[in-house]
């Protein structure tokens, strides 16, 4: 049985969160198919990196260890991954829908002349009957993703030009350890034999990576604002409420586009997907673009002037009113009642 294969991102000896999510998702697919799970990681000083990858149930791990492989650059990574994919011939290959995965995966799909589905949020295995060929294809990858600005979900399949490749959105796949003592076969790739000098023509001159102090994904409480918040100043109200409740502030795409809040705090299809225990939506109308990224919150409060705002359909508490009045009252009564 051909394998399921995951491309892992690594920086400073730490395997990215998205890659751990992908390994878990890949393992679930591999189990359904009765197939082995393989992975590749490319970076520098990767000695012992398998300890972060093996527990997800990886049968075979390819490691490309070379100082030139970090920070990520397209061409050397594409050369290494393509080489291993040609040799291993997996049936499914997964990448993160991150700035790395979305840069790398299409380049590799072009080299392998195969299909690639972008930004999937659901992965499954299923069959498909091709009328023209009168043939039933079994055990195909169902790569399901929001389409057309998020108004529909499309199930994308690829029955004849394999491998079946997909990039997967961050935060949508559940991360779970398969077996803490899982035995992985580690294969060290001879980087020099695969990459050439021309793979390093693009040079990184400078890099400013903000260690993202924003961690929306793990925040138990999120206070999010939309275009209806009206101004950057009004967002301070939301920040106060978030601070007092021990939560984080987020925003809809409209609020980010309007410059009310930084884009690294965007929640929704083109931002972060979150599942907090409490989500307070202030001045958010509830475009699917946004609700797709927060609808799994355990409890939702909507504060909106418009009693008909679509988000109210999702909310457990609908407060019809001005957020400039409602939020200070929430802060006041929280202070009075919390111990």
């Amino acid at each position: 049985m051909k394998s399921v294969f995951v491309y892992c991102e690594v920086e400073n000896q730490k395997v990215a969160e998205i890659s751990q999510e992908l390994l878990s998702a890949g393992k679930r697919l591999a189990e359904k198919l009765g197939a082995p799970l393989e992975a590749m990681v490319n970076g520098k000083d990767l000695k012992g990196i398998e300890s972060q990858i093996a527990p997800y149930g990886v049968d075979k791990l390819f490691v490309g260890d070379d100082t030139r492989l970090e920070p990520y650059r397209t061409l050397p990574h594409a050369a290494l991954v393509t080489k291993v994919l040609k040799q291993e011939d997996p049936q499914i290959v997964l990448f993160g829908a991150t700035s790395v995965g979305r840069d790398l995966a299409p380049r590799i799909a072009s080299k392998l002349n195969c299909g690639l589905t972008a930004d999937t949020t659901i992965l499954d295995i299923g069959d498909h009957f091709v009328k023209k060929e009168k043939k039933e294809y079994t055990d195909l990858l169902y790569a399901i993703r929001p389409a057309f600005g998020g108004s529909i979900m499309a199930n994308i399949i690829n029955w004849d030009m394999h491998p079946q490749m997909a990039t997967v959105r961050e935060g949508v796949m559940k991360k779970e350890i398969f077996d803490a003592n899982y035995k992985t076969k580690v294969i060290s790739v001879k980087v020099n034999e695969v990459v050439s000098d021309t793979d390093f023509v693009v040079k990184i001159i400078e890099r400013h990576i903000e260690e993202s102090e924003v961690n929306l994904k793990d925040a138990p409480i999120i206070v999010a604002g939309g275009y209806g918040v009206g101004s950057k100043e009004n967002f301070d109200l939301l920040k106060n409420l978030a601070n007092i409740l021990g939560g984080e502030v987020g925003g809809s795409r409209a609020a980010v586009d309007a410059g009310f809040i930084d884009h690294n705090r965007q929640i929704g299809q083109t931002g972060t997907t979150v599942r907090p225990k409490l989500y307070i939506a202030a001045g958010i109308s509830g475009a699917i673009q946004h609700t797709a990224g927060m609808q799994d919150a355990s409890l939702i409060i909507s504060i909106n002037n418009d009693p008909e705002a679509p988000i109210n359909a999702l909310a457990d508490y609908v407060i019809t009113g001005d957020l400039g009045i409602v939020i200070p009252k929430m802060i006041q009564y929280y202070k009075e009642n919390a111990k």
């Binding site: 195969c114 299909g115 690639l116 589905t117 498909h128 169902y142 929001p146 389409a147 998020g150 108004s151 529909i152 979900m153 499309a154 199930n155 994308i156 399949i157 690829n158 029955w159 004849d160 030009m161 509830g286 699917i288 609700t291 797709a292 609808q295 939702i300 009693p307 679509p310 109210n312 359909a313 999702l314 909310a315 457990d316 508490y317 609908v318 407060i319 019809t320 009113g321 001005d322 009045i325 409602v326 009252k329 929430m330 009564y333």
Partner: peptide, 27 residues
């Protein structure tokens, strides 16, 4: 290589909401 097998509309699943005003007692 990629073909659309099917599409489905996204329907917001309605939750039973408590509807409140901005009055002190409600909040």
């Amino acid at each position: 290589p990629t073909k659309v097998k099917s599409v489905s509309s996204i329907v917001l699943t309605a939750t039973e909401s408590k509807v409140l005003t901005d009055s002190d007692s409600d909040i």
